[in-house]
């Protein structure tokens, strides 16, 4: 069980990290969402092997630790807020720069810096 969960967390984190290396803002945000889910699963995995899920009515046998479930819930809420914030930011970048491609964005950045330097020289 632990091995399976560890593998899942690893795969989720790896896929997220892979997506974050792409030069596309939406993929980066999607990658972060995957990484956040990897972290939440890691939290759950911290106590899941100790018994069944602690949902009422409690049956016989061991019940798993409810603390991590509360933590995971908090983690999910934070993940939701963060994802919403990132989408807003990505949208705002698109609205001001009209592209969500990181390469194009960095080109814009360099162009702006060159302009600034020229201003500096002319001053």
């Amino acid at each position: 069980m632990i091995l399976l969960l560890a593998a899942t967390v690893g795969t989720l984190f790896g896929s997220g990290a892979y997506l974050m290396l792409k030069p596309d803002l939406l993929r980066i945000v999607a990658g972060l969402v995957l990484v956040s889910n990897a972290a939440i699963l890691a939290l759950l995995a911290a106590a899941l092997d100790r018994g069944r899920a602690p949902i009422l009515p409690l049956g016989d046998g061991a019940v798993s630790d409810p603390v991590v479930q509360a933590l995971a819930l908090t983690g999910i809420v934070i993940g939701l807020a963060v994802a919403a914030l990132l989408f807003v930011l990505a949208y705002q970048v698109y609205a001001t720069s009209e592209t969500i491609d990181l390469d194009e964005l960095s080109q814009l950045e360099t162009r702006r810096e060159q302009e600034l330097e020229q201003e500096e020289v002319s001053v």
Binding site: V9, M20, L25, I28, V29, L32, V35, S36, A38, A39, I40, A42, L43, A45, A46, A47, V67, V68, L71, G75, V82, L85, L86, L89, A90, V93
Partner: peptide, 22 residues
């Protein structure tokens, strides 16, 4: 956006560390 993405990655790595501590 750069700030948020990099630091969020850091935050989630921290969360995994917290899971480990627990």
């Amino acid at each position: 956006l750069v700030f948020a993405v990099v630091n969020l990655l850091g935050s989630f790595i921290f969360l995994i560390g917290v899971a480990g501590l627990y």
